[in-house]
Design a binder for these strands. Structure first.
Length: 474
RNA sequence: GGCGCUAUCGUCUAGGGGACUAGGACGGGGCCCUCUCAAGGCCCAAACACGGGUUCGAAUCCCGUUAGCGCUACCA
Protein backbone atom coordinates (compact mmCIF):
# COMPACT_ATOMS: atom_id res chain seq x y z
CA UNK A 1 0.00 0.00 0.00
CA UNK A 2 1.09 3.54 -0.51
CA UNK A 3 1.12 5.92 2.39
CA UNK A 4 -0.62 9.27 2.26
CA UNK A 5 1.88 12.03 1.53
CA UNK A 6 2.40 14.38 4.44
CA UNK A 7 4.12 17.72 3.91
CA UNK A 8 4.73 20.70 6.12
CA UNK A 9 5.45 24.40 5.95
CA UNK A 10 7.59 25.41 8.90
CA UNK A 11 8.19 29.14 9.20
CA UNK A 12 9.86 30.69 12.20
CA UNK A 13 7.83 33.58 13.60
CA UNK A 14 10.71 36.00 13.63
CA UNK A 15 9.47 38.28 10.86
CA UNK A 16 6.69 38.84 8.39
CA UNK A 17 5.55 36.32 5.81
CA UNK A 18 8.13 36.77 3.09
CA UNK A 19 7.09 36.13 -0.51
CA UNK A 20 9.69 33.35 -0.67
CA UNK A 21 8.12 31.66 2.32
CA UNK A 22 4.69 32.15 0.83
CA UNK A 23 5.78 30.43 -2.35
CA UNK A 24 7.29 27.53 -0.40
CA UNK A 25 4.00 27.20 1.45
CA UNK A 26 2.13 27.34 -1.85
CA UNK A 27 4.21 24.53 -3.38
CA UNK A 28 3.65 22.39 -0.30
CA UNK A 29 -0.06 23.09 -0.46
CA UNK A 30 -0.26 22.42 -4.19
CA UNK A 31 1.60 19.13 -3.73
CA UNK A 32 -0.73 18.06 -0.91
CA UNK A 33 -3.83 18.91 -2.93
CA UNK A 34 -2.48 17.20 -6.02
CA UNK A 35 -1.56 14.00 -4.23
CA UNK A 36 -4.42 13.85 -1.76
CA UNK A 37 -1.92 14.42 0.99
CA UNK A 38 -1.95 16.30 4.27
CA UNK A 39 -0.50 19.78 4.69
CA UNK A 40 0.77 20.52 8.18
CA UNK A 41 1.64 23.97 9.47
CA UNK A 42 4.40 24.03 12.05
CA UNK A 43 5.64 27.17 13.75
CA UNK A 44 9.35 26.89 14.57
CA UNK A 45 9.54 29.06 17.62
CA UNK A 46 12.60 27.57 19.31
CA UNK A 47 14.39 30.88 19.01
CA UNK A 48 12.62 32.47 21.95
CA UNK A 49 14.61 35.68 21.58
CA UNK A 50 13.14 36.61 18.23
CA UNK A 51 9.84 34.74 18.02
CA UNK A 52 6.65 36.65 18.74
CA UNK A 53 2.93 35.91 18.74
CA UNK A 54 2.39 38.94 16.53
CA UNK A 55 4.59 37.45 13.84
CA UNK A 56 2.80 34.12 14.13
CA UNK A 57 -0.50 35.89 13.54
CA UNK A 58 0.83 37.76 10.53
CA UNK A 59 2.02 34.50 8.98
CA UNK A 60 -1.29 32.75 9.59
CA UNK A 61 -3.22 35.72 8.23
CA UNK A 62 -1.00 35.89 5.16
CA UNK A 63 -1.53 32.22 4.33
CA UNK A 64 -5.25 32.57 4.85
CA UNK A 65 -5.37 35.62 2.61
CA UNK A 66 -3.63 33.65 -0.12
CA UNK A 67 -6.13 30.86 0.24
CA UNK A 68 -3.51 28.41 1.46
CA UNK A 69 -5.28 26.40 4.12
CA UNK A 70 -3.56 23.85 6.35
CA UNK A 71 -4.96 20.49 7.38
CA UNK A 72 -3.14 20.15 10.70
CA UNK A 73 -1.73 22.66 13.12
CA UNK A 74 -0.44 25.14 13.69
CA UNK A 75 1.77 23.08 15.95
CA UNK A 76 4.37 24.94 17.90
CA UNK A 77 7.82 23.43 17.94
CA UNK A 78 8.49 24.87 21.35
CA UNK A 79 5.94 22.46 22.81
CA UNK A 80 8.14 19.49 21.94
CA UNK A 81 11.43 20.32 23.62
CA UNK A 82 11.03 17.36 25.97
CA UNK A 83 11.01 15.01 22.97
CA UNK A 84 13.95 16.86 21.41
CA UNK A 85 15.94 16.40 24.61
CA UNK A 86 14.98 12.77 24.89
CA UNK A 87 16.07 12.19 21.29
CA UNK A 88 19.42 13.83 21.96
CA UNK A 89 19.88 11.68 25.06
CA UNK A 90 18.99 8.60 23.08
CA UNK A 91 21.69 9.34 20.52
CA UNK A 92 24.07 9.91 23.40
CA UNK A 93 23.37 6.51 24.94
CA UNK A 94 23.65 4.91 21.50
CA UNK A 95 27.10 6.42 21.11
CA UNK A 96 25.92 8.31 18.02
CA UNK A 97 26.45 11.59 19.84
CA UNK A 98 28.74 12.83 22.59
CA UNK A 99 29.08 15.55 25.18
CA UNK A 100 31.32 18.46 24.23
CA UNK A 101 32.84 20.59 26.96
CA UNK A 102 34.57 23.10 24.72
CA UNK A 103 33.59 26.64 25.63
CA UNK A 104 32.23 29.25 23.28
CA UNK A 105 35.43 31.21 23.77
CA UNK A 106 37.69 28.31 22.82
CA UNK A 107 35.63 27.64 19.72
CA UNK A 108 35.60 31.30 18.71
CA UNK A 109 39.37 31.42 19.04
CA UNK A 110 39.76 28.37 16.82
CA UNK A 111 37.39 29.84 14.31
CA UNK A 112 39.25 33.13 14.21
CA UNK A 113 42.51 31.25 13.76
CA UNK A 114 41.14 29.27 10.85
CA UNK A 115 39.84 32.49 9.35
CA UNK A 116 43.31 34.00 9.54
CA UNK A 117 44.80 31.13 7.58
CA UNK A 118 42.05 31.33 4.97
CA UNK A 119 40.88 27.94 6.11
CA UNK A 120 37.33 26.83 6.70
CA UNK A 121 36.67 26.06 10.34
CA UNK A 122 35.50 22.64 11.27
CA UNK A 123 35.20 21.37 14.83
CA UNK A 124 37.98 18.83 15.32
CA UNK A 125 35.90 16.43 17.41
CA UNK A 126 38.31 16.42 20.33
CA UNK A 127 35.58 15.89 22.94
CA UNK A 128 34.39 12.92 20.93
CA UNK A 129 37.64 11.21 21.80
CA UNK A 130 37.23 11.69 25.55
CA UNK A 131 36.92 8.44 27.45
CA UNK A 132 33.57 7.76 29.11
CA UNK A 133 35.30 8.18 32.46
CA UNK A 134 36.68 11.59 31.52
CA UNK A 135 33.35 12.78 30.22
CA UNK A 136 31.64 11.52 33.34
CA UNK A 137 34.16 13.35 35.51
CA UNK A 138 33.52 16.58 33.63
CA UNK A 139 29.80 16.23 34.17
CA UNK A 140 30.34 15.53 37.89
CA UNK A 141 32.55 18.59 38.08
CA UNK A 142 29.60 20.60 36.84
CA UNK A 143 31.20 21.60 33.54
CA UNK A 144 28.59 22.86 31.09
CA UNK A 145 28.34 20.89 27.88
CA UNK A 146 26.51 20.66 24.59
CA UNK A 147 25.67 17.47 22.73
CA UNK A 148 27.17 16.94 19.31
CA UNK A 149 26.27 14.39 16.69
CA UNK A 150 29.11 12.09 15.65
CA UNK A 151 29.20 12.72 11.91
CA UNK A 152 29.48 9.42 10.05
CA UNK A 153 32.44 9.20 7.68
CA UNK A 154 30.33 8.15 4.75
CA UNK A 155 28.53 9.51 1.75
CA UNK A 156 25.40 11.51 2.57
CA UNK A 157 23.43 11.79 -0.64
CA UNK A 158 19.85 11.93 -1.78
CA UNK A 159 17.77 12.18 -4.93
CA UNK A 160 16.36 15.65 -4.70
CA UNK A 161 12.95 15.90 -6.34
CA UNK A 162 13.89 19.13 -8.07
CA UNK A 163 17.68 18.96 -8.42
CA UNK A 164 18.31 15.29 -8.94
CA UNK A 165 21.17 13.58 -7.10
CA UNK A 166 23.02 15.73 -4.58
CA UNK A 167 26.05 14.28 -2.84
CA UNK A 168 27.94 15.36 0.27
CA UNK A 169 30.76 13.58 2.08
CA UNK A 170 30.57 13.08 5.83
CA UNK A 171 34.23 14.02 6.22
CA UNK A 172 33.52 17.49 4.87
CA UNK A 173 31.02 18.11 7.66
CA UNK A 174 31.75 18.52 11.34
CA UNK A 175 30.19 17.10 14.47
CA UNK A 176 27.51 19.74 14.83
CA UNK A 177 25.72 20.69 18.01
CA UNK A 178 22.25 19.23 18.47
CA UNK A 179 21.51 20.29 22.05
CA UNK A 180 22.70 23.53 23.64
CA UNK A 181 24.28 23.75 27.08
CA UNK A 182 20.94 25.06 28.36
CA UNK A 183 19.42 21.85 26.96
CA UNK A 184 17.37 23.56 24.27
CA UNK A 185 17.51 21.90 20.84
CA UNK A 186 19.32 23.22 17.80
CA UNK A 187 17.35 23.66 14.59
CA UNK A 188 18.51 20.54 12.75
CA UNK A 189 17.65 18.26 15.65
CA UNK A 190 14.27 19.86 16.23
CA UNK A 191 13.39 19.64 12.55
CA UNK A 192 14.30 15.98 12.17
CA UNK A 193 12.73 15.01 15.47
CA UNK A 194 9.50 16.78 14.49
CA UNK A 195 9.45 15.55 10.91
CA UNK A 196 9.81 11.98 12.16
CA UNK A 197 7.17 12.53 14.81
CA UNK A 198 4.76 14.04 12.27
CA UNK A 199 5.53 11.29 9.76
CA UNK A 200 6.46 13.84 7.11
CA UNK A 201 7.05 12.10 3.77
CA UNK A 202 8.14 15.04 1.60
CA UNK A 203 10.22 17.96 2.78
CA UNK A 204 9.66 20.83 0.37
CA UNK A 205 11.69 23.89 1.38
CA UNK A 206 14.01 26.61 0.11
CA UNK A 207 17.37 26.02 -1.53
CA UNK A 208 19.08 27.68 1.42
CA UNK A 209 18.50 24.39 3.24
CA UNK A 210 20.39 22.07 0.93
CA UNK A 211 23.49 22.32 3.07
CA UNK A 212 21.41 21.35 6.12
CA UNK A 213 20.16 18.25 4.39
CA UNK A 214 23.26 16.03 4.78
CA UNK A 215 23.28 16.85 8.48
CA UNK A 216 19.64 15.90 8.73
CA UNK A 217 20.22 12.70 6.79
CA UNK A 218 22.94 11.83 9.31
CA UNK A 219 20.36 12.36 12.03
CA UNK A 220 17.78 10.14 10.31
CA UNK A 221 20.39 7.40 10.05
CA UNK A 222 21.41 7.81 13.67
CA UNK A 223 17.76 7.42 14.65
CA UNK A 224 17.45 4.44 12.35
CA UNK A 225 14.62 6.09 10.45
CA UNK A 226 13.99 6.28 6.72
CA UNK A 227 14.52 9.77 5.37
CA UNK A 228 11.74 11.62 3.53
CA UNK A 229 11.88 12.81 -0.05
CA UNK A 230 13.61 16.17 -0.21
CA UNK A 231 12.65 18.87 -2.70
CA UNK A 232 14.62 22.11 -2.62
CA UNK A 233 12.99 25.00 -4.40
CA UNK A 234 15.18 27.81 -5.74
CA UNK A 235 15.55 31.21 -4.13
CA UNK A 236 13.69 34.35 -5.14
CA UNK A 237 15.93 37.22 -6.22
CA UNK A 238 15.54 40.97 -6.52
CA UNK A 239 15.90 42.80 -9.83
CA UNK A 240 19.66 43.06 -9.24
CA UNK A 241 20.08 39.31 -8.99
CA UNK A 242 20.68 39.36 -5.24
CA UNK A 243 18.57 37.48 -2.74
CA UNK A 244 15.29 39.35 -2.31
CA UNK A 245 15.45 41.56 0.77
CA UNK A 246 13.99 44.71 2.32
CA UNK A 247 16.42 46.69 0.20
CA UNK A 248 14.38 45.73 -2.86
CA UNK A 249 11.19 47.24 -1.46
CA UNK A 250 8.13 45.20 -0.66
CA UNK A 251 8.97 41.62 0.30
CA UNK A 252 6.18 40.80 2.73
CA UNK A 253 2.93 39.33 1.52
CA UNK A 254 1.11 41.98 3.55
CA UNK A 255 2.82 44.71 1.51
CA UNK A 256 1.18 43.45 -1.66
CA UNK A 257 -2.17 43.09 0.00
CA UNK A 258 -1.87 46.76 1.00
CA UNK A 259 -0.89 47.72 -2.53
CA UNK A 260 -4.16 46.40 -3.89
CA UNK A 261 -3.05 43.03 -5.24
CA UNK A 262 -5.71 40.34 -5.33
CA UNK A 263 -4.84 37.14 -3.45
CA UNK A 264 -5.64 34.93 -6.44
CA UNK A 265 -3.32 37.00 -8.64
CA UNK A 266 -0.56 36.88 -6.06
CA UNK A 267 -0.91 33.15 -5.76
CA UNK A 268 -0.88 32.63 -9.52
CA UNK A 269 2.16 34.85 -9.90
CA UNK A 270 4.02 33.10 -7.08
CA UNK A 271 3.24 29.70 -8.55
CA UNK A 272 4.84 30.74 -11.82
CA UNK A 273 8.01 31.82 -10.07
CA UNK A 274 10.14 28.72 -10.45
CA UNK A 275 7.38 26.48 -11.69
CA UNK A 276 5.42 26.21 -14.90
CA UNK A 277 2.67 23.87 -16.01
CA UNK A 278 4.43 23.37 -19.33
CA UNK A 279 3.24 24.81 -22.59
CA UNK A 280 2.04 28.38 -22.78
CA UNK A 281 -0.45 28.51 -19.95
CA UNK A 282 -0.01 31.32 -17.43
CA UNK A 283 -3.28 32.51 -15.97
CA UNK A 284 -4.43 29.40 -14.15
CA UNK A 285 -7.52 28.63 -12.13
CA UNK A 286 -6.87 26.96 -8.82
CA UNK A 287 -8.05 23.57 -10.03
CA UNK A 288 -5.81 23.71 -13.11
CA UNK A 289 -2.86 24.71 -11.00
CA UNK A 290 -3.36 21.74 -8.72
CA UNK A 291 -3.93 19.42 -11.65
CA UNK A 292 -0.72 20.48 -13.41
CA UNK A 293 1.50 20.61 -10.33
CA UNK A 294 4.46 18.35 -9.83
CA UNK A 295 7.76 18.66 -7.99
CA UNK A 296 9.66 17.61 -11.10
CA UNK A 297 8.47 20.68 -12.98
CA UNK A 298 9.99 23.06 -10.46
CA UNK A 299 12.87 25.02 -11.90
CA UNK A 300 16.30 24.45 -10.38
CA UNK A 301 17.58 27.97 -10.87
CA UNK A 302 16.60 31.04 -8.88
CA UNK A 303 13.95 33.44 -10.18
CA UNK A 304 13.79 37.23 -10.17
CA UNK A 305 10.68 38.76 -8.62
CA UNK A 306 9.23 41.01 -11.33
CA UNK A 307 6.63 43.38 -9.95
CA UNK A 308 5.63 44.57 -13.44
CA UNK A 309 4.46 41.08 -14.28
CA UNK A 310 2.71 40.77 -10.93
CA UNK A 311 0.73 43.91 -11.71
CA UNK A 312 -0.11 42.63 -15.15
CA UNK A 313 -1.32 39.40 -13.58
CA UNK A 314 -3.44 41.38 -11.16
CA UNK A 315 -4.94 43.28 -14.08
CA UNK A 316 -5.89 39.96 -15.67
CA UNK A 317 -7.75 38.91 -12.54
CA UNK A 318 -9.28 42.36 -12.14
CA UNK A 319 -10.78 42.36 -15.61
CA UNK A 320 -12.07 38.82 -15.22
CA UNK A 321 -13.85 39.66 -11.99
CA UNK A 322 -17.35 41.14 -11.96
CA UNK A 323 -18.11 44.42 -10.24
CA UNK A 324 -20.07 42.37 -7.76
CA UNK A 325 -17.02 40.33 -6.85
CA UNK A 326 -14.83 43.41 -6.62
CA UNK A 327 -17.28 45.42 -4.53
CA UNK A 328 -16.11 44.30 -1.07
CA UNK A 329 -12.43 44.90 -1.87
CA UNK A 330 -13.09 48.32 -3.37
CA UNK A 331 -15.35 49.34 -0.50
CA UNK A 332 -12.68 48.31 1.97
CA UNK A 333 -10.07 50.35 0.14
CA UNK A 334 -12.37 53.37 -0.08
CA UNK A 335 -13.00 53.17 3.63
CA UNK A 336 -9.28 53.01 4.22
CA UNK A 337 -8.97 56.17 2.13
CA UNK A 338 -11.57 57.88 4.28
CA UNK A 339 -14.13 58.11 1.50
CA UNK A 340 -17.75 57.58 2.41
CA UNK A 341 -20.08 56.42 -0.31
CA UNK A 342 -23.30 56.15 1.62
CA UNK A 343 -25.99 54.01 0.05
CA UNK A 344 -24.68 54.52 -3.46
CA UNK A 345 -24.31 51.46 -5.67
CA UNK A 346 -20.64 51.38 -6.63
CA UNK A 347 -20.90 48.59 -9.15
CA UNK A 348 -21.47 50.75 -12.26
CA UNK A 349 -18.55 52.89 -11.15
CA UNK A 350 -16.32 49.84 -10.82
CA UNK A 351 -17.36 48.62 -14.24
CA UNK A 352 -16.59 51.99 -15.79
CA UNK A 353 -13.16 52.19 -14.28
CA UNK A 354 -11.68 48.72 -13.90
CA UNK A 355 -10.38 48.30 -17.44
CA UNK A 356 -7.93 51.09 -16.74
CA UNK A 357 -6.83 49.62 -13.43
CA UNK A 358 -4.18 47.15 -12.45
CA UNK A 359 -4.63 47.45 -8.71
CA UNK A 360 -7.59 47.62 -6.38
CA UNK A 361 -6.20 50.92 -5.21
CA UNK A 362 -6.36 52.26 -8.78
CA UNK A 363 -10.06 51.43 -8.93
CA UNK A 364 -10.69 53.03 -5.56
CA UNK A 365 -8.91 56.26 -6.47
CA UNK A 366 -10.95 56.66 -9.63
CA UNK A 367 -14.17 55.60 -7.94
CA UNK A 368 -13.70 58.25 -5.27
CA UNK A 369 -13.69 60.97 -7.92
CA UNK A 370 -16.66 59.50 -9.81
CA UNK A 371 -18.67 59.49 -6.59
CA UNK A 372 -17.68 63.04 -5.76
CA UNK A 373 -16.37 64.94 -8.81
CA UNK A 374 -15.56 67.98 -6.72
CA UNK A 375 -12.52 66.00 -5.65
CA UNK A 376 -11.17 66.66 -9.12
CA UNK A 377 -10.23 70.18 -8.15
CA UNK A 378 -9.40 69.47 -4.56
CA UNK A 379 -5.82 68.65 -5.26
CA UNK A 380 -3.22 70.79 -6.93
CA UNK A 381 -2.74 68.48 -9.87
CA UNK A 382 -6.33 68.88 -10.99
CA UNK A 383 -6.23 72.65 -10.57
CA UNK A 384 -2.96 73.00 -12.41
CA UNK A 385 -4.30 70.91 -15.24
CA UNK A 386 -7.33 73.15 -15.63
CA UNK A 387 -5.07 76.20 -15.49
CA UNK A 388 -2.99 75.07 -18.43
CA UNK A 389 -5.81 73.77 -20.58
CA UNK A 390 -5.57 76.68 -22.97
CA UNK A 391 -7.71 79.59 -24.05
CA UNK A 392 -10.54 77.62 -25.65
CA UNK A 393 -11.01 75.37 -22.64
CA UNK A 394 -13.53 77.42 -20.69
CA UNK A 395 -15.43 78.45 -23.77
CA UNK A 396 -15.78 74.93 -25.08
CA UNK A 397 -16.71 73.68 -21.65
CA UNK A 398 -19.48 76.27 -21.45
CA UNK A 399 -20.79 75.15 -24.84
CA UNK A 400 -20.79 71.55 -23.68
CA UNK A 401 -22.59 72.52 -20.52
CA UNK A 402 -25.38 74.10 -22.54
CA UNK A 403 -25.72 71.05 -24.71
CA UNK A 404 -25.79 68.74 -21.71
CA UNK A 405 -28.31 70.79 -19.79
CA UNK A 406 -30.79 70.18 -22.56
CA UNK A 407 -30.44 66.42 -22.20
CA UNK A 408 -33.50 65.16 -20.35
CA UNK A 409 -32.83 63.22 -17.12
CA UNK A 410 -34.37 60.13 -18.72
CA UNK A 411 -31.86 60.31 -21.57
CA UNK A 412 -28.84 60.69 -19.30
CA UNK A 413 -27.34 57.33 -20.19
CA UNK A 414 -24.07 56.31 -21.75
CA UNK A 415 -25.91 55.22 -24.87
CA UNK A 416 -27.66 58.55 -25.39
CA UNK A 417 -25.02 61.06 -24.29
CA UNK A 418 -22.63 60.75 -27.22
CA UNK A 419 -24.98 62.11 -29.90
CA UNK A 420 -25.72 65.52 -28.37
CA UNK A 421 -21.98 66.14 -27.97
CA UNK A 422 -21.21 65.01 -31.51
CA UNK A 423 -23.95 67.33 -32.78
CA UNK A 424 -22.47 70.20 -30.82
CA UNK A 425 -19.00 69.63 -32.24
CA UNK A 426 -20.37 69.41 -35.77
CA UNK A 427 -22.41 72.58 -35.48
CA UNK A 428 -19.53 74.60 -34.07
CA UNK A 429 -16.91 73.17 -36.39
CA UNK A 430 -15.02 71.64 -33.46
CA UNK A 431 -13.24 68.34 -33.26
CA UNK A 432 -14.95 65.85 -30.99
CA UNK A 433 -11.97 65.92 -28.68
CA UNK A 434 -12.36 69.67 -28.25
CA UNK A 435 -15.65 69.17 -26.48
CA UNK A 436 -14.93 65.82 -24.83
CA UNK A 437 -11.61 66.55 -23.23
CA UNK A 438 -12.72 69.66 -21.30
CA UNK A 439 -15.56 67.65 -19.78
CA UNK A 440 -13.17 64.88 -18.87
CA UNK A 441 -10.76 67.27 -17.21
CA UNK A 442 -13.52 69.12 -15.38
CA UNK A 443 -15.00 65.92 -14.01
CA UNK A 444 -11.87 63.97 -13.17
CA UNK A 445 -9.01 66.41 -12.91
CA UNK A 446 -7.23 64.14 -15.33
CA UNK A 447 -6.68 63.79 -19.07
CA UNK A 448 -7.32 60.09 -18.76
CA UNK A 449 -10.59 58.32 -18.08
CA UNK A 450 -13.21 56.05 -19.52
CA UNK A 451 -15.10 57.44 -22.58
CA UNK A 452 -16.80 60.71 -21.68
CA UNK A 453 -20.32 59.44 -22.31
CA UNK A 454 -19.75 56.65 -19.79
CA UNK A 455 -18.12 59.04 -17.38
CA UNK A 456 -21.09 61.40 -17.48
CA UNK A 457 -23.52 58.55 -16.95
CA UNK A 458 -21.63 57.19 -13.99
CA UNK A 459 -21.23 60.55 -12.30
CA UNK A 460 -24.91 61.36 -12.78
CA UNK A 461 -26.69 64.36 -14.25
CA UNK A 462 -26.91 66.66 -11.25
CA UNK A 463 -23.37 66.12 -10.00
CA UNK A 464 -21.89 66.34 -13.47
CA UNK A 465 -23.68 69.57 -14.42
CA UNK A 466 -22.83 71.16 -11.10
CA UNK A 467 -19.17 70.29 -11.37
CA UNK A 468 -18.92 71.46 -14.99
CA UNK A 469 -20.57 74.74 -14.11
CA UNK A 470 -18.15 75.22 -11.24
CA UNK A 471 -15.09 74.64 -13.39
CA UNK A 472 -16.42 76.71 -16.30
CA UNK A 473 -17.00 79.52 -13.85
CA UNK A 474 -20.56 80.08 -14.90
C1' G B 1 39.20 29.35 1.95
C1' G B 2 35.90 24.75 2.05
C1' C B 3 31.38 22.34 0.57
C1' G B 4 27.13 22.57 -2.51
C1' C B 5 23.80 24.48 -6.25
C1' U B 6 22.86 26.98 -10.90
C1' A B 7 23.56 28.79 -16.11
C1' U B 8 17.72 29.69 -22.86
C1' C B 9 15.53 36.91 -24.93
C1' G B 10 16.18 42.68 -19.83
C1' U B 11 12.49 39.37 -16.67
C1' C B 12 9.26 34.65 -15.96
C1' U B 13 9.65 30.46 -18.91
C1' A B 14 8.65 26.18 -23.13
C1' G B 15 12.26 22.74 -24.62
C1' G B 16 14.11 16.58 -21.89
C1' G B 17 19.30 14.34 -29.31
C1' G B 18 16.56 15.37 -35.16
C1' A B 19 9.46 18.51 -34.97
C1' C B 20 14.31 24.86 -33.61
C1' U B 21 14.91 29.86 -39.31
C1' A B 22 14.69 28.24 -30.50
C1' G B 23 7.96 28.97 -28.93
C1' G B 24 4.83 31.86 -25.26
C1' A B 25 4.20 35.74 -21.49
C1' C B 26 5.79 40.45 -18.96
C1' G B 27 8.35 44.75 -20.16
C1' G B 28 10.00 47.86 -24.68
C1' G B 29 8.92 49.72 -29.86
C1' G B 30 5.31 50.27 -34.03
C1' C B 31 0.42 49.96 -36.36
C1' C B 32 -5.02 49.37 -36.01
C1' C B 33 -9.20 50.87 -33.05
C1' U B 34 -10.36 55.80 -30.90
C1' C B 35 -12.95 61.92 -27.60
C1' U B 36 -8.06 60.68 -23.83
C1' C B 37 -5.92 56.50 -21.49
C1' A B 38 -6.42 51.57 -20.99
C1' A B 39 -8.33 47.01 -22.85
C1' G B 40 -8.28 44.24 -27.41
C1' G B 41 -6.12 42.86 -32.35
C1' C B 42 -1.76 42.72 -35.60
C1' C B 43 3.57 43.38 -36.19
C1' C B 44 8.95 44.26 -34.66
C1' A B 45 13.57 44.01 -31.73
C1' A B 46 15.45 40.56 -28.12
C1' A B 47 18.40 34.44 -25.68
C1' C B 48 20.71 28.68 -25.83
C1' A B 49 27.63 32.00 -20.91
C1' C B 50 32.47 30.04 -23.05
C1' G B 51 35.66 25.82 -24.56
C1' G B 52 36.20 20.82 -25.39
C1' G B 53 34.12 16.07 -26.17
C1' U B 54 30.05 11.89 -27.26
C1' U B 55 26.96 11.40 -31.75
C1' C B 56 25.39 10.90 -38.59
C1' G B 57 23.13 15.00 -35.63
C1' A B 58 23.24 18.81 -29.43
C1' A B 59 19.83 24.29 -26.38
C1' U B 60 19.09 19.15 -24.89
C1' C B 61 24.20 14.03 -22.72
C1' C B 62 29.57 14.24 -20.47
C1' C B 63 33.99 17.09 -18.88
C1' G B 64 36.38 21.68 -18.00
C1' U B 65 36.41 27.15 -17.61
C1' U B 66 33.97 31.42 -16.18
C1' A B 67 30.21 33.81 -13.56
C1' G B 68 26.30 34.07 -9.98
C1' C B 69 24.05 32.32 -5.65
C1' G B 70 23.59 29.44 -0.98
C1' C B 71 25.70 27.35 3.45
C1' U B 72 30.01 27.35 6.43
C1' A B 73 26.83 29.55 14.81
C1' C B 74 25.46 26.74 21.53
C1' C B 75 20.26 31.41 14.38
C1' A B 76 16.34 29.32 11.95
Amino acid sequence: MTTTPRVRFAPSPTGYLHVGGARTALFNWLFARKTGGVFVLRIEDTDKERSTDAHTKVILDGLTWLGIGWDEGPVFQGASVARHQADAERLLSLGKAYRCFCTKEELDAQRADAERHKQGFRYDGRCGRLSPAQAEANVKAGKPCVIRLRMPQEELAWDDAVHGRITFQGHDLDDFVILRSDRTPIYNLAVVSDDIDMRITHVIRGDDHVSNTPKQIALYRAFGKAEPVFAHVPMILGADGKKLSKRHGATAVGDYQAQGILPAAMRNFLALLGWSPGGDREVLAEADMIEAFSLERIQSKPAVFDTAKLEWMNGQYLSALSADALLPEVTRELTAMGVTTGARDLRPVIDAVKARSRLITDIAKQAAVRVDPSKAEQDDKGRQLVAKMGASFTGNLALAADALRSVAPADWTAAKLTDPLKALAASKGLKLGDVMQPIRVALTGSTVSEPVNELLAVVGREAALAQIARVAGT
